[in-house]
Amino acid sequence: MATSPVKEFLRTHFMSEKCYNEFFVNLHFMHVPCLTIVLSKTVGFWIMLDTLIAQLPQVLKIMRRGSAAGLSLTAVLLQLYAISCPVVYCMANNFPRFAWGERLFTLVQTAVIGFLILHYRGDTLKGLMFLLAYSGIMFLLGSYATAAVVSTMQASSVTALVASKVIQAGTNYSNGSTGQLSSISVFLVWASSLALIFVSLQDTGRSLNTLAHILSACLSCILLGQLFCYRKSSSAGKQKIE
């Protein structure tokens, strides 16, 4: 008898034949080992999806509004550094391209955000020079960086990501507005932080890396809260004026 497309998809990407039978034949939906496997697979797919599209809504919002107001260039540069570190690590260690190629999408999107911030500030030439300089530095680091430099960058990437969120949250607070910050991008990054916490707990248990991911998720919650609060206060202000 031919296998149904749904069953084939689930067995190929999310679970083994044994787990499929436990869930859909024996109707044992609380089978813990199988639930753990399915959750791990789902989290892995989510992290990959987030890597591909997380910053795209932010790029589109800036271009649609023709403004990058409220976005901290320092925060974006720190975020770019945090994303670049794993790429440099993979390049320096000659990992196969398929193992890290999807990270290039986030890297390119974040670099474009940095360029757009400079462009809409009237510094288009600086933006182009930034892209050129960044490309050159990435090539040099990936090709010639020493093992000590690569390891240090990899170890500092999560710290840089946390710092970028602190700076953006501080900028929002100072401005009393989130400006052109994309709520979709912030939500996707927050969801990815939760997925990374799960992966970190599975791999290393309670470690400093796990704590850093928890802190990153908490800061993403703060950014989401700011988006909600400032948008609500802005809407209330408009209604009062009308």
Score class of each variant (00 low, 15 high):
Met1Lys: 11
Thr3Tyr: 09
Ser4His: 10
Pro5Ile: 06
Val6Met: 13
Lys7Met: 03
Leu10Tyr: 10
His13Glu: 13
Met15Asp: 08
Asn21Ser: 14
Phe23Pro: 08
Phe23Glu: 11
Phe24Val: 00
Val25Gln: 12
Asn26Ala: 15
Leu27Met: 13
Met30Phe: 14
Val32Thr: 15
Val32Cys: 05
Leu35Pro: 00
Val38Asp: 04
Phe45Ile: 05
Met48His: 14
Thr51Ile: 04
Ala54Val: 01
Leu56Gln: 13
Leu56Asp: 05
Gln58Cys: 00
Lys61Pro: 00
Ile62Arg: 06
Ile62Pro: 01
Arg64Lys: 15
Leu71Arg: 08
Leu77Asn: 05
Tyr81Arg: 06
Ala82Arg: 02
Ser84Ile: 02
Met91Trp: 10
Met91Tyr: 04
Ala92Met: 06
Asn93Ile: 02
Asn94Gln: 12
Arg97Ile: 06
Gly101Lys: 02
Gly101Thr: 01
Arg103Tyr: 15
Thr106Ile: 02
Leu107Gly: 09
Gln109Asn: 13
Gln109Pro: 05
Thr110Ser: 14
Ala111Lys: 07
Ala111Met: 11
Val112Gln: 08
Ile113Trp: 07
Ile113Ala: 07
His119Met: 07
Tyr120Arg: 08
Tyr120Gly: 04
Arg121Lys: 10
Gly122Glu: 12
Thr124Cys: 12
Lys126Trp: 14
Met129Tyr: 15
Phe130Cys: 03
Ala133Gly: 11
Ser135Arg: 03
Ser135Trp: 00
Ser135Pro: 00
Ile137Thr: 12
Ile137His: 01
Ile137Glu: 03
Ile137Asn: 02
Met138Trp: 03
Leu140Arg: 10
Gly142Cys: 07
Ser143Trp: 05
Ser143His: 08
Tyr144Trp: 11
Ala145Ser: 13
Ala145Phe: 04
Thr146Ala: 09
Ala147Tyr: 02
Gln154Pro: 07
Ser157Met: 11
Ala160Trp: 11
Ala160Thr: 12
Leu161Thr: 01
Ala163His: 07
Ser164Tyr: 11
Ser164Asn: 07
Lys165Trp: 04
Lys165Phe: 06
Lys165Met: 09
Ile167Lys: 07
Gln168Cys: 10
Ala169Asp: 11
Gly170Trp: 09
Thr171Leu: 11
Asn172Tyr: 06
Tyr173Asn: 03
Asn175Phe: 04
Gly176Lys: 11
Ser177Leu: 02
Gln180Leu: 09
Leu181Gln: 12
Ser182Leu: 03
Ser183Met: 06
Ser183Asn: 07
Val189Thr: 12
Trp190Asp: 01
Trp190Met: 08
Ile197Cys: 15
Phe198His: 14
Phe198Pro: 01
Val199Thr: 12
Ser200His: 08
Gln202Phe: 06
Thr204Leu: 01
Arg206Asp: 04
Leu211Pro: 00
Leu211Phe: 12
Leu211Trp: 13
Ile214Gln: 11
Ile214Glu: 13
Ile214Phe: 14
Ser216Ile: 04
Ser216Tyr: 09
Leu219Val: 05
Cys221Gln: 02
Cys229Glu: 10
Ser234Asn: 09
Gly237Ala: 14
Gln239Thr: 06
Gln239Cys: 00
